[in-house]
Design a protein around this nucleic acid. Structure first.
Lengths: 344, 344
DNA sequence: CTGTTAGCGCGTTCAT
DNA sequence: ATGAACGCGCTAACAG
């Protein structure tokens, strides 16, 4: 660890007291100009840098926040982290990122580690498995500011930031309907988190509004927590769907991974998109344009989700005024490309 | 910050001394069984969790390492971070990730922050701009263990982990040659870091071995540090190349971003890949299969780079035995898909 | 086996 | 305007 010079080193070298040096460095009004100059000069020359750990211990706050996400190796997550990092760096907060890998137990382990590590607040996007929020609620009760982002839950009352999943899903489905598709399948994660049901609801509402009867056979929820699960199950599901009596003419996928993998697997199985089946899905990949065919997506303002969540958390940390908790839902953006339009 | 109970709270409640409690909790041999049990029980019940900050201050080490990368919002980087995180979590080290955004000044700022934050070691993949390593060398001299990963430099002597760029580039170029391409263009970043020149050298060597004369007009180095720069310049470069007298029949791109953007832009400009021009490039995107056309890539073992780099760093931190520094170069893997093969 | 004491580096009273 | 002393929570050397 950092074995730089300390206040005491400066004090001894300059024959001053530690407290004088400390005050000189913080530009206190009670220190004479000459001493200030002298101290500052010495500090610069020997590039003194305050020991953050000691300061944290003293002040009872670390100016660092914990961030728990499913996986850092996920395009969409990385974009949100970028937003979080941007806001926090700007406000001189350090972030400590931990990965839950979609495992509830690991999520708890992360939180524990972060908490004992002395974070000032917690930013969390729960795992797909997470249904029990008592753990977080207890932490919150014992004074830890918490903000949920991307994946929300009603079970805990706090600041939350995500997108309007219902509307996004509604628009995606509506877009397919507007393009003449009728047998629209929906593939989703089987998580209990609200994002999944909201997207499902948006899908159903769009069908209902268009007077298209809902067909449960066209809807699939399954375990997407690991890449292997996702790939294998998705392939089976797609094959089953495409061989069923009511073969879908379009698919609306509910998550980033689901959308891109779905396209890859359809290609692999030899189906022509959108001729055989159209596709639109939630996705933030910047390769959407280059995909085969270019992928229509529901784009989420990932960077903004991250930076806003960070903003909410820092305000929670600083403000002791009990402002009521709020849930911010940003709008998604529909990006129409080839995969969802009947080829001319 | 964490305002849990402390050793003193336990000590007072149990009418013991703080040190006894401390030792009981660390299962010291010098503490009686009954006291141990009592302390442990009380600690569990009130879920005591040691204050990491205080411990860090006391022990002079934080069990945390700093990681500086260009951007977390970069597929390849995220994969390496995943590897780093995996190894560090396993060994109970915390990582603090900071983004340089390819800016040398910001890189220095990150390092400063990390250093004053009391990291035990530093993992760094320098910016494309970085040519001056004195800064790092000084830190190293003052006792900070440093490991370079992914992007290396001769200017500093320490552990380094990356891939064999020369060989990877050689193989990519050779593959194009084997498939009958002769006018092979090469697009690269204009960084001074060795990775760029090594890839360039690999390209040239493959040409030379095949007795294909080197044509400087087919080689382009340019500023890829921001997404805007990359996109705009790349489009110009591609248009120029494709309209030149010696139009390339194939392109070898040297970085992840370059490869995927190149494909997207070629599509946008209306060129058919690989019919009009073939393409292979360094890239780790898991969407390579789904791209239009599927993209042939030189794949780097990103996770391994990360975890190995972390391993080297932790060994540096723990070992005080002066083992000589080593540079580990992992093999890349060529993944041949449609973009680099003459359509049949 | 247990308690007392000291000190990590810093900020902050309380004196002077 | 400056210094001495204390304490944040923890570990470890030193006593007994």
């Amino acid at each position: 660890m950092n074995n730089n010079i300390t206040l005491r080193d400066i004090a001894e070298a300059l024959k001053l007291s530690v407290s004088t040096v400390s005050r000189a460095l913080t530009d206190s009004y009670q220190i004479g100009d000459k001493t200030k100059k002298k101290v500052l000069a010495y500090a610069n020359e020997h590039n003194y840098v305050p020991n953050r750990i000691a300061r944290s211990l003293k002040e009872g706050k670390s100016r660092s926040i914990g961030v728990v996400v499913c996986s850092i190796d996920n395009n969409f997550v990385a974009q949100m982290l970028d937003g979080i990092d941007h806001y926090c760096t700007e406000h001189q907060y350090q972030i400590i990122i931990m990965q839950s890998k979609e495992l509830f137990e690991q999520e708890k382990a992360c939180i524990n580690l972060l908490y004992s590590g002395g974070i000032d607040g917690l930013l969390i996007s729960p795992t797909y498995q997470t249904t029990d929020f008592d753990y977080l609620i207890n932490l919150q009760k014992s004074g830890l500011p918490i903000v949920l982002f991307d994946r929300l839950s009603d079970k805990i009352d706090t600041h939350k930031v995500a997108v309007d999943n219902f509307k996004g899903a509604y628009n995606a489905t509506l877009h397919l309907i507007d393009n003449g598709y009728k047998n629209i399948a929906h593939i989703n994660s089987d998580t209990k988190l609200s994002m999944a049901t909201e997207r499902f609801e948006g899908y159903k509402k769009a069908l209902a509004d268009a007077k298209i009867p809902y067909n449960a056979n066209l809807v699939q929820f399954f375990d997407t927590t690991t890449a292997d699960n996702l790939n294998q199950n998705l392939e089976k599901i797609l094959q089953a769907l495409m061989h069923a009596d009511t073969k879908p003419d379009a698919i609306f996928t509910a998550t980033d991974q689901l959308s891109t993998r779905c396209l890859a697997i359809l290609n692999k199985l030899g189906y022509l998109v959108p001729t055989d089946v159209a596709l639109i899905g939630f996705s933030n990949t910047d390769l959407a344009d280059a995909l085969n065919p270019s992928l229509s997506t529901i784009y989420q303002p990932s960077f903004e989700i991250g930076s806003l969540a960070a903003k909410q958390l820092l305000s929670l940390i600083d403000d002791k005024t009990n402002t009521p908790f709020e849930t911010i839902l940003l709008d998604t953006q529909i990006q129409v490309r080839s995969s969802s339009q009947k080829s001319k």
